[in-house]
Amino acid sequence: MDFGAHLLLASLEGAVTAAVLTLTALGLSLVFGIMRVVNVAHGEFYMLGAVIAWFVATSLGGHPALGFMAALVVAPVLVGLLAAAADVTLLKRVDYDPERTIVVTIGLLYIIQQVALMTYGPEARPVQEPFNHRIMLPLFSWQDGFYFPSGWGAPSTTSYKLFVIGSAAAVLLGVWLLMTRTKIGLVMRATQLDREMAQVFGVAVERVYALVFGLGAALAALGAVLVVPIQQAHYLMGHDPLLLSFIVVIIGGLGSLPGTVLAAVLIGMSDGIISVFFSPTLAKILATLLVALVLVFRPQGLFGTRAA
């Protein structure tokens, strides 16, 4: 394959990573932005989404698409409900104190992870994609214009990967509409701006928090359901998404939704592209150091403008 084909493939892989990462990071960002707490268990909600998707898809027979579509609905809803329950029973009890919340969510991380190990087991298991067509990709050269190379190594992708990118974009649009065009979104934004004031104006802050925490977890679960036909479900799979989401949320500016989306696309794309050309470990080292230094020297994020 020539360089152009490499780059095209890397970009597509990057776009898939970016799509899933956008959803996961968006969940973390919503929780941080509105509730001002860091949810360390976010990656485990992601893992739960994948594991539940496997359970749903395997227990439903018939066409793979049937099981997958069911999982696409069931997993986020279940995970969201679980997270909302955790919010009401645990986070509320520690008054959303930042330090105690971190300790509680670390505890949750181990509980969810280990319960998954005990029930689902240590194996990595795939979920079959609902559809999968190979799509050949055109290349461009100055002599021939666009052309389809033939033979082994010709660049191609699958219809499912395009579906992942499309779905993520659709969900993103949905969240954006929810936040800007609905009463619930208005209430959430009001709570984000000033919790006490929102309370004075009759906003049931506790319910908003439970909703936001549930929604955040559901977004992570949704990202995982989309990714599970490409990767596999495993009880330790939550670690990397958590770290990447952290990176995205911080680079994008803590609590800023547009910044989060922009950073997710940037980092997802570059992660995909970099790991095709460079060592993924080196890429991760640079990314984590970048996050630390951004927090130290530019706490409002690279794209944020608001004073920290």
Partner: peptide, 28 residues
Amino acid sequence: ALALRTVGVGFMIVTLMFAQAVYLVALY
């Protein structure tokens, strides 16, 4: 010297990230 320029949650995440970088360096 770097992390102490941040406070609270920022400090926690910065230390987490530096530790992660050290771990990755050991792997690298």
